[in-house]
Amino acid sequence: MTEIKIKLERPRVEELLARYEDVIGKDFPGYRNHVYRTITYAMHFLEHDVEVEPLVEIAFVYHDIGLWTDGELAYLEPSESVALADNEKYEWGLDTEALRGAIHWHHKIFPYKGPHERVIEACRKADWVDASKGTIRKGLSKQEIKKVEAAFPNLGFHNTLLRLAKDYGGSTLVGGIKVTRGIVKW
């Protein structure tokens, strides 16, 4: 596999995230860097295939957005809805099933098999690497993960997830159970 490449500037990502900055509020910097880390990992798994880069960027901008737009712990479907509505509204022309799949399956525990497998699986692996803070590496070296994390620091993103679980669920435990039941796929 090729060396991991870090793009510090992604104009499409910045433009799309800017539309939701007010909704995401104080969580914005952490979410932005999570988006950049996951895109970086996914593009590495896809060997930097520029043909799928727009889909990967857009999917990751929207993959958790339902946490803020809908205030939902079961945020996959709300995130998909926002992404698909914007795909239509802004006429991006992305394959709706690929976009939906990249969002819907990004927490799948076992490898994804099916339509658009290459991209969906790269997105799934990328999110697991970042969600686990590099404990799950999916073939990446510790040094590669540290390099990406240095470029895009956590800025409290994982703490944000715990806080939202508590805020939306009533307690961290109840919220954690709701999150797990609502977003983890087998």
Rank of each mutant, 00 (worst) to 15 (best):
L140F: 15
D22W: 07
G25I: 05
A151G: 02
V35P: 01
Q143K: 15
E53V: 09
L8E: 13
D167F: 14
M43G: 11
E97M: 10
E15P: 09
E53Q: 10
D95R: 06
G71S: 06
D27S: 08
K5A: 05
K133P: 01
K26D: 15
R37K: 08
R12I: 15
K142N: 12
L73P: 10
F110K: 09
Y168M: 03
F60L: 11
T38S: 04
D22F: 10
G93Q: 09
Y168G: 00
K138V: 12
N33K: 03
T172L: 11
A122N: 02
I39S: 13
H44A: 11
E72V: 06
I103F: 04
E14M: 12
I120V: 14
V129L: 06
I136W: 09
G175W: 06
A74C: 09
P153D: 14
Y168E: 02
F28W: 07
L17T: 08
V61H: 02
N154H: 11
L164P: 06
R181I: 07
L99W: 09
E53H: 06
A18M: 11
I183Q: 04
T96C: 10
R10Q: 13
A151S: 00
S171E: 05
G175N: 03
P153F: 04
D49E: 13
S81T: 15
A102C: 14
L161F: 07
R181Q: 08
L94S: 02
Y62D: 07
S79P: 07
D95G: 14
I65A: 12
A150V: 12
D22T: 11
A18G: 00
D22H: 15
I65S: 11
F28K: 06
A42H: 00
E53M: 10
Y31S: 03
K125L: 11
R100T: 03
I4D: 05
H63L: 07
K108C: 05
I65N: 09
T180A: 06
D49N: 03
K125F: 13
L173V: 12
L164C: 04
L164H: 03
K7Q: 14
K138L: 12
E80G: 04
A150I: 12
Y90N: 08
H116G: 02
K147D: 13
D27M: 12
D130E: 09
L16F: 08
